[in-house]
């Protein structure tokens, strides 16, 4: 996991994002600043409503930034026109894996067609070339060739998610954003997908891992960024954040995650953390 510290791959600086219009306009992200180095694995942790998905969606241009800057590979993505966005997306530099593959894959398209879609959109290849590329990705995510012509509904959750990852990898992205990639899966499938992501992390694809559960990503991430109510409250190497959490919310996260070796931290301590949070942010 080499981290080239010279130039960050993803640079988010002072990002502000608002939702809604007029009187109902609400600020959901406040001055978010963080970066991801090439080949690094970073976890973006926060509860529902903390804004973690919003940040991810802003990075890929689905949500406009009100202030601040987002740049990928040195290129400033803030305020791009929709045709410029289309061009950037077709370059395949940044890719996104959604939480639920049942929803992110067209139920009427075969796995082959879904995985091939990014290539077909850019065009310029014949059928054989496309299928070759698809097969290469299938191999990379450990999907058997026999599943090529199956529909999403005919395969398991783990296989679906791996197909979604294959679709994201087919453009050889430098940054892969994965949004809760295993929360819709069961144990055996989760392990497979997490192993796969860990393998990928060893290569030169940077991963931005979005999750509400620190426990699910602790085994993979190099660094962790904690988001609470739209603000970055803590950031640092994974083991540091877990073993010496500073912010009350981080302490609560660490204390809440159920582990096998001990029951969760006791209730009074958690309640006192919650009280602190209520007073602070």
């Amino acid at each position: 996991m080499s981290a080239d510290t010279s130039a960050p791959l993803l640079d988010v600086d002072g990002l502000d994002v608002f939702y809604g219009r007029g009187a109902r306009r609400k600020q959901v992200i406040h001055s978010a600043t963080f970066s991801v180095a090439p080949g690094e694995v970073v976890g973006l942790i926060g509860e529902t409503g903390s804004g973690k998905s919003t940040i991810a969606r802003t990075i890929v241009g689905l949500v406009p930034a009100a202030a601040g800057r987002v740049s990928v590979g040195g290129r400033d993505l803030t305020g791009l026109s929709s045709s410029a966005w289309r061009g950037f997306r077709r370059s395949g530099t940044v890719q996104y894996v959604f939480q639920d593959p049942l929803r992110s894959l067209d139920p009427d398209l075969t796995l082959h067609d879904s995985v091939a879609e990014p290539l077909l959109i850019t065009g310029g290849r014949n059928r054989t070339q496309v299928t070759e590329r698809v097969l290469a990705q299938f191999a990379r995510v450990n999907l058997d060739e026999s599943l090529l012509r199956r529909l999403p509904g005919q395969v398991s959750g783990g296989q679906r998610q791996r197909a979604a990852i294959a679709r994201a990898l087919i453009t050889e992205p430098r940054l892969l954003i994965v949004d809760e990639p295993v929360s819709a899966l069961d144990s055996a499938n989760r392990v497979q997908v997490l192993e796969l992501l860990r393998e990928l992390a060893g290569g030169d694809v940077a991963l931005l891992f979005i999750s509400h559960d620190l426990g699910s990503v602790a085994g993979i991430t190099d660094r962790v960024i904690v988001l609470y109510r739209g603000r970055v409250v803590e950031a640092g190497p994974t083991s540091d954040v877990i073993n010496h959490p500073v912010h009350p919310y981080t302490q609560l996260l660490v204390g809440s995650a159920p582990t096998l070796t001990r029951a969760g931290a006791d209730r009074e301590w958690r309640d006192s953390l919650r009280a602190q949070l209520g007073a602070a942010v």
Binding site: R89, R103, S104, E117
Partner: peptide, 26 residues
């Protein structure tokens, strides 16, 4: 409004592509 259309958009699909590939068959 489905997620697979969002995924296609993120891959750089135009509205025409989405219409032809995803909407028409359904």
């Amino acid at each position: 409004s489905s997620q697979y259309v969002e995924a296609a958009t993120l891959a750089g699909a135009s509205a025409a592509w989405v219409l032809r590939r995803h909407i028409l068959p359904k």
